[in-house]
Design a protein around this nucleic acid. Sequence first.
DNA 1: GTGGCTGTTATAATTAAATTTACAGCAAAG
DNA 2: CTTTGCTGTAAATTTAATTATAACAGCCAC
Lengths: 151, 151
Amino acid sequence: MKYSTRLSDAVHIMAFIAIHQEYDLSSTVIADSIQTNPAFVRQIMMKLKKAGLMSSVNGHAKPSLAKPTEEITLLDIYKAVEGNKPLLHLDTHTNPDCGVGVNIQLALQDYYNEIQKGTEKHMSSISLQDIIKLYYQKSGQAENIVKVQTN
Amino acid sequence: MKYSTRLSDAVHIMAFIAIHQEYDLSSTVIADSIQTNPAFVRQIMMKLKKAGLMSSVNGHAKPSLAKPTEEITLLDIYKAVEGNKPLLHLDTHTNPDCGVGVNIQLALQDYYNEIQKGTEKHMSSISLQDIIKLYYQKSGQAENIVKVQTN
DNA sequence: GTGGCTGTTATAATTAAATTTACAGCAAAG
DNA sequence: CTTTGCTGTAAATTTAATTATAACAGCCAC
């Protein structure tokens, strides 16, 4: 399949909203920045909304974050758009008549779960605010602009 | 796309070889355990071989591990079969005319790299021996059988 | 030499994802 | 109260990474 870029796109959307709170932000405007189409943006936005990370009103092009950027973590966004999809995937099609096949996968599962937990812990330590701060560093803008635009 | 199960299958193959060193292990026999086809098994085995994790002789159905199971890590196997494929994927199709789009993805990349490094460190701490040990626990067999079969 | 295997390539089928189209319903403007 | 543009949502299509399959040259042991 294609690689999923939902997490990246969702962060993009959230950051875009945080940075441009003063403008009208239709799904079309956001889609133009991601270079995708509005329906896809709306699909992701609905997942973020259902996860309690942003809010919006039907027919009204003014989405807003539901919490301060410091309180939204990368893990929150990951869970919102990817659900419980793990990073590593077992092969669940092994031969059930082969004890080795089944039990090796069961053993692997324990280690995959451990890895997943570690990664999620790491993701929960990164906030949207951290990402936006780094974004401003990357784009060479002054730090005080961050404060103006995210309040 | 489909989810990649190459890592799981590669571990399966390595463990299978470690556990059944006394038998002839044609790609067909191994494929039967994973319930896939021999050519796919051979493709993965070649990657493991090129990474220096196992050895085999053309025309001879007796593959063997190139190192003791304690010295082969999950990261070694991951790198062998997935190369530098990351776990999280940036959206590289954002609008280049939109500064936000580009710089948000650049900021994200730094955090993704950090996460990747953490995960790889974790994977490098898990050995094939660990997985095989847990496999024997899962299949309810005595620990001493492990020693007989992996020496 | 024969049979069975590995190593290798090329092609098809599968599957998860993104894209696109479509439309019902809401909100604000006139 | 009608128009316009938007959101929310579902369905159908296209794209892309993967697995599956087929084919065959070359090696090994008998």
